[in-house]
């Protein structure tokens, strides 16, 4: 049996998790305070994923940039590709929280949405 120690990153409690694995299958998760911790551990040892937050350029806006995020977690190894793909994206003001910035970013099937408001100039 293999034992992996993780820190749950799903909320700021940061519970210390212990994952017991047998032939790369998860047998038991302990140390979590809530269900999200168990889900996180199962995913982290098989297919780790993260939410990405960055900014994109805005034209004709009161501010030159707006903050954005992936609507859901994307595979960890796609994080840098996602940020790179967003470097060339430009939004036209006005931008509102929730506006679609880019669909299916870096082939992940996940959309990127605005997390800030930028008014028109």
């Amino acid at each position: 049996m293999e034992i992996k120690k993780l820190i749950c990153i799903n909320c700021p409690m940061g519970c210390p998790l212990t994952v017991e694995m047998e032939e790369s299958k998860v047998i038991r998760v302990s140390g979590n305070t809530c269900k999200r911790g168990e889900d996180y551990a199962r995913r982290e040892v098989t297919a780790p994923a993260r939410t990405v937050a960055t900014t994109v350029k805005v034209v004709n806006g009161k501010a030159g940039r707006v903050s954005v995020k992936t609507r859901e977690d994307i595979p960890k190894e796609k994080v840098l590709a996602c940020v790179k793909a967003l470097k060339d994206v430009q939004m036209e003001a006005p931008v509102c929280i929730g506006d679609l910035v880019a669909a299916d970013i870096a082939g992940t099937g996940v959309d990127v949405v605005a997390t800030g408001n930028v008014g028109e100039l």
Binding site: P12, T51, T54, T115
Partner: peptide
């Protein structure tokens, strides 16, 4: 603070700072 991880206690969902 454009990263996510805000509001899990208050809104039961993970928001970015501006949100």
């Amino acid at each position: 603070c454009i990263h996510n991880g805000f509001g899990l206690h208050t809104f039961r969902e993970e928001l970015t700072g501006p949100e």
